[in-house]
């Protein structure tokens, strides 16, 4: 029960957090994260993160929606039970466009939000940080840098020193 999850350092301003993130990143840590009440401009760069791949999920969703919509209408109105209405063609990309367009957006939106949740591994209601009392301030106005014990570079004394020298106002160990 009392296994250690990682080390939690609190910072009081976005600028201090960015500087700390830069130092942690330079020190070569890999299993670490910054937790903030709102996204901080420039933090992705400071942490050395790559562009988010959510767009691929949106694209796949949208593509499925468009082709699915077109195939559905073709199947229903011109293949499975074809009825001529007003002398118009049984299938045309024009009359089926509005519905296929809406389905593109619908599945694209589902792709974006489900892709985001999948990439973030959410929902996850049992995270060790959520049990920490100090960490509850993360959605209020405090900023945290967390380095996990599983990180190959992790050394309790050295890591603590790094976070403190980066200007942390509080540093504590988080239990699993």
């Amino acid at each position: 029960m009392s296994e250690k999850y990682g080390i939690l350092a609190q910072y009081d301003s976005p600028a201090a957090t960015i500087k700390a993130a830069e130092q942690v990143s330079e020190a070569g840590y890999s299993k670490w994260d910054v937790h903030t009440p709102f996204p901080i401009h420039g933090m992705d760069h400071a942490m050395g993160m790559k562009n988010s791949p959510v767009g691929w999920f949106t694209f796949l969703g949208g593509l499925t929606g468009y082709t699915g919509g077109m195939v559905m209408i073709w199947f229903m109105n011109s293949y499975h039970y074809d009825i001529v209405v007003g002398g118009k063609p049984l299938f045309s990309g024009f009359y089926s466009f509005p519905v296929a367009y809406e389905l593109t957006i619908l599945l694209g939106a589902f792709g974006s939000i489900l892709g985001m949740l999948f990439l973030n591994r959410l929902p996850r209601h049992h995270h060790p940080l959520l049990k920490n009392k100090r960490f509850a301030q993360v959605t209020h106005d405090k900023f945290f840098v967390v380095i996990e014990c599983d990180d190959p570079n992790y050394n309790e004394a050295k890591t603590r020193e790094l976070l403190e020298s980066a200007g942390a106002s509080q540093v504590e160990i988080v239990e699993e």
Binding site: D33, P37, M43, M49, V54, Y101, E102, A109, N120
Partner: peptide
């Protein structure tokens, strides 16, 4: 709240998804 921790790695995907949803909602 789905266990949201304000992680910056999460914010990065979140903001991208938000931008994409805005981009989809506009033509919608």
């Amino acid at each position: 709240a789905l266990g949201w921790t304000g992680s910056n790695r999460h914010w990065s995907n979140y903001e991208k998804a938000y931008l994409l949803l805005a981009g989809l909602s506009t033509p919608l």
